[in-house]
Design a protein around this nucleic acid. Structure first.
Lengths: 187, 187
DNA sequence: GTGATTATTTATCATATGATAAATCTTTTC
DNA sequence: GAAAAGATTTATCATATGATAAATAATCAC
């Protein structure tokens, strides 16, 4: 879990006691490429940290597979709309490469917040960062053309285009795979 | 500030001491219709609570006015991408009706978190709720047609269409005003 | 209340993206 | 390493939405 704690250090350093408590909650889990880490219909009770690999959150809209987001090494992943509401999620989390994560039981972690306020603060900062990302993403989807979104992604996260199949990138950008291919063709 | 504390009660009740601390930080402010509450280029250091009225967050993309979001009575408003990063915001907050808000100085409030962890928890829950909204909004923008988005808004928040000029609603939905008018025309 | 301003709708034409199908190219499996 | 499965590209046609302009309707200011 060294990698998790190094990452935490960059977000909000926590006391040794809080780190100890967290380390007792986190469990390392691995999933091979293509496997679902959490299934559709399951209520999200876990915060994941990506140690190695890449995952995506996806769902189906009228039988069409839509990728909501990708997360790479050192990122945290959860289906917020389920974790924070207690409702079953219509979304799944899937390993895009062979992936190793630290699974943190959310209820157990929340249970430590009274004892370790620094853990709560860390968690808050993680959520704040995710929130800022979604706000920026809305801006991109709201009024940029598909081509602008593709180029912005290419610039902001070239890794996505190297490690993620284009069919997943397309729906992430809010377009069909054929459109993405066409956009890429224009040089 | 009664209204603020009633709303807090529904999110996460706080101790009288925390409420007292918060009440010393909050200041009631009013803006007449059309006035900017915070300007573009300003770094957001304030969390607002809407006591009466409606506000929107907006920005310009190539001289076109784009509404990012609306907030009505009992909602909290802040420009997250600025408040949580410390960078100047490209967005403004504007009163759409004559509006009264409670302005909460963010740094002062953050400064109370060590003393009042319940205040931090309340704030975290506010952010979590906002985050869930943005995640759902992304889903809507990512693959729903303009017509689907309009109908969903009509169903989820009919108030928006009653109280907000359509030109603002259009950009909020990610379409032009002319398109929105066309969609509304189809019955 | 009247004129001026602003918001909304309607019309026409242009274009980006979708849908479908088929042709390549790549990866997986045995 | 050959066959099968899956991913990507290319092509064609259809359509939703954009851009622009002009007509109407609503609101505001005095």
């Amino acid at each position: 879990m060294q990698k998790l704690f190094s990452q935490i250090e960059t977000i909000h350093p926590i006391s040794p006691a809080a780190a100890k408590a967290l380390s007792l909650i986190g469990k390392e889990v691995s999933f091979s490429k293509g496997r679902n880490i959490q299934e559709i219909g399951h209520t999200c009770k876990t915060l994941y940290f990506v140690k190695k690999g890449v995952v995506r959150i996806y769902y189906f809209k009228e039988a069409i597979d839509i990728t909501e987001s990708f997360e790479f090494e050192n990122a945290f992943v959860a289906r917020a709309e389920s974790l924070f509401t207690g409702k079953p999620s219509r979304k799944a989390i899937q390993a895009i490469e062979d992936t190793t994560l630290i699974a943190i039981d959310a209820d157990k972690m929340f249970g430590q917040f009274d004892t370790h306020p620094d853990l709560e603060r860390l968690f808050r900062k993680i959520i704040e960062t995710s929130y800022v990302h979604t706000v920026n993403r809305i801006e991109s989807l709201q009024f940029n053309t598909a081509e602008e979104r593709y180029k912005a992604l290419l610039k902001a996260a070239p890794d996505v285009l190297k490690r993620i199949p284009l069919k997943y990138v397309a729906s992430y950008l809010g377009i069909t795979q054929v459109s993405l291919s066409r956009i890429r063709g224009i040089k």
